[in-house]
Simulated assay, not measured.
Amino acid sequence: MTYESIEFQQEGGIARIWLNRPDKLNSFTAAMHRELANALTQVEQGGARVLVISGRGRGFCAGQDLSERQPGADGGRVDLGETVETFYAPLIRRLNALPLPVVVGVNGVAAGAGANLALAGGDIVVAAESASFIQPFCRLGLIPDTGGTYALPRLVGRARALGLALLGDKLPAAQAQQWGMIWECVPDAELEARLDALARHFAQAPTKGLAFTKRAIGESLGNTLDAQLDLERDMMRELGASDDYAEGVAAFMEKRQPVFKGQ
């Protein structure tokens, strides 16, 4: 399949997506969304054990390309709710539902939907020191979409979430790490190597267990303690019968490195 707005590669258990509109800071268009949807279908159907998302050029993603969502000169209105329902919400839902880790590498600016693609769609977010996160929706009379209103308060708390959303200030990557918004901030020159190392690590990890961990933590946000304990019981029962658990125990007892199959 040929892509124009993104690059897609899948090999050795590692799937990689690069947003690829560098002249527009990788801002979203309908065409890019359709290509992302096709790439995610390939990830869902293939043998990937990790997905890495990053951006080409000097920025990760500047959010929506507003040239596609301008009110008409005749006073016509744009249905932004339909845009969310058709493109952004399905993207975040699919990334969260993937039964494998999603690693996001942020280089340069991550603004609007681009920031929230990382924060609401990524499981491990690594940013270059020069990167920044911006919620500029307030400057347009809008709200943080693409899962922003869900992810922000859970990542940084109510006060900081409201400050970011109501002021639209730029948050440097180092501060995002200090606030617990992202996993790691690394020197710019080390970002690609760090993403490659994480990809190789997860490609050899016990994928089913990681997928269950991802799901359990996600469901915990809406569960009672009793419901979560029941979920842990059921998941541990299934994982205890998995090939990877048997291999992990055998490797521990034999004092060797495990060879996980992701099953």
Rank of each mutant, 00 (worst) to 15 (best):
C61W: 00
T86W: 01
V50T: 11
Q64M: 14
A37C: 00
A73W: 09
R93K: 14
A30C: 08
G46W: 01
R34W: 02
Y88M: 10
S67Y: 08
E82A: 15
G46Q: 06
L25P: 00
G47N: 13
G76E: 08
Y88E: 15
G12C: 02
H33F: 14
S67H: 11
L51N: 04
Q64A: 15
A31I: 06
E35G: 03
A48W: 03
K24N: 09
N38L: 12
R77Y: 08
E44C: 04
R56E: 11
G72N: 12
A48F: 01
G12W: 00
R34P: 00
L66F: 14
F28I: 01
V43D: 04
L36K: 05
I17P: 00
Q42E: 15
A30N: 10
L25E: 06
D79K: 05
A62C: 12
T41R: 14
R93D: 12
L91D: 07
I92V: 14
M32V: 02
R94W: 09
S27K: 04
T29M: 03
P71H: 08
R34V: 08
I92P: 02
T83Y: 10
G47D: 15
T83C: 11
M32Q: 09
G13Q: 05
E85L: 12
L80N: 10
G72L: 11
F60Y: 13
S54V: 03
V52L: 06
F87A: 08
F60E: 07
F28L: 11
V78W: 01
L36H: 05
G81H: 09
R34D: 13
A37P: 00
F28C: 00
M32A: 10
R69C: 11
R93N: 10
G47I: 07
A39G: 05
I17C: 01
A89S: 14
R77M: 13
A31S: 12
Q45D: 14
A30W: 02
A30F: 07
G81D: 13
V50E: 04
A48R: 06
D74L: 10
V78I: 15
G55T: 05
V78H: 06
A30M: 11
C61T: 05
V84S: 14
E44G: 08
E82P: 01
G81T: 10
A39L: 01
L51S: 03
L66R: 13
R94K: 13
A48K: 03
I14C: 01
L51D: 01
I53W: 03
K24D: 14
L66W: 15
G12N: 06
